[in-house]
Design a binder for these strands. Structure first.
Lengths: 198, 198
DNA sequence: CCTCATCATTTAACGGGTGTAAAGTGAAGA
DNA sequence: TCTTCACTTTACACCCGTTAAATGATGAGG
């Protein structure tokens, strides 16, 4: 196979912007590669050269959004904070929930694609979603080490429980499909997390 | 459009059995309509005539599994039981968790398809998954009426929380992808539900 | 100025998947 | 023989993905 042609950073950015615009305007149903290509003023093949696959495009869209979102900086600052108080985990959860609505459309598409597409499966362990679980694991381990976790609560299990509870899938079920407000979701998840603390 | 040709119940059953076999043998990645048709010994178009769409096929697969599973009878018996004790909800949850691994492959495909496919979206409110939420709602309402719900816990909200926590999406995150055992999942969800009781 | 090389695409072709539509087919029964 | 029934075959469209040839613009060198 010949080496794929190079695609300029400007063209990549134009594609990513167009993709986000299209999803924002038209929703998830109509964001085909061809439509994204048209909106970006490039050929369909250019998208494949730029991002390798649809999963690659969706992943790059998440990263593109990362680069433009102050929430990500906040998440990262909290993740490396040396604090050990319980409020830290609550702040981390809040920061995530501020960001989630923004990336939700693309994150949930990628999550769905991961069921049958190995590339998407790999991308789903992308540093953002994977980083989220690590963040919670770190907090819960630290809370356990400082005696702030409820007796009988395993920190690794607790981290997984909260992670699953704030995953885009859960947001989809309760907010997108059942009509909860973001605030309801936040309170419900914060309450669940509080119940794990001593 | 001409009226679609009739497809016999025997052919429909053969398709459904073949589809389940194929998914059991080969997993989610290789259950294309063409492969299912081949395995059932029918043409690809016959599947469309029988079930309308892929979402229709997936939905019919769930219903087909319903008809063959003792767990469904158990769920239905519990759903109409006049008991008001807390153990009833726990039994209902257990019955669901006994059934979930069996339908998981198809339920999760249908759930993913629902993101972008209106037919799948409609089918997702299929009586089995929709019935699950109604079941929990009923139990929690009854528990509240008899003073068995923890103070400050809204029965409708609690039902949604548990429903989301036992949805195939959650099973996917924790059991399929993170390697929890079914027992771990069960205990985690039962503990969460217990925490809502007085 | 002309030619050539490089760069960043586009165009074209094809394949596998889902879906729509209509004509075709063979078996069975009246 | 004709009709009905339960499919199959054929053709096409749109989607994502792979592959390779073609294209136009630009810059460097003679």
């Amino acid at each position: 196979m010949k080496k794929p042609p190079p695609i300029s950073e400007a063209t990549k950015a134009a594609i990513l912007d167009a993709a986000w615009r299209l999803i924002a305007q038209d929703g998830l149903d109509n964001a085909s590669q061809a439509r994204i290509a048209e909106a970006a003023g490039v050929s369909r093949q250019t998208i494949f050269y730029a991002f390798g696959s649809r999963a690659g495009l969706l992943t790059a869209m998440l990263q593109h959004m990362d680069a433009q979102s102050p929430e990500v900086g906040r998440l990262q600052a909290l993740a490396v904070s040396p604090r050990t108080d319980a409020a830290l985990a609550a702040e981390y959860l809040d920061a995530w929930l501020d960001y989630l609505p923004r990336i939700y459309p693309v994150a949930i598409l990628l999550n769905a694609a991961a069921l049958t597409d190995g590339d998407a499966r790999a991308a789903i362990d992308d540093r953002l979603v994977g980083a989220l679980l690590s963040g919670f694991t770190r907090f819960f381990t630290r809370l356990a080490d400082t005696g702030r976790l409820r007796a009988g609560v395993d920190p690794a299990q607790a981290a997984l429980e909260i992670w699953a509870a704030v995953h885009p899938s859960a947001w989809r079920l309760l907010v997108v499909e059942r009509g909860w407000t973001a605030e309801q979701f936040r309170q419900s998840r914060q309450t669940a997390m509080q119940a794990m603390l001593a």
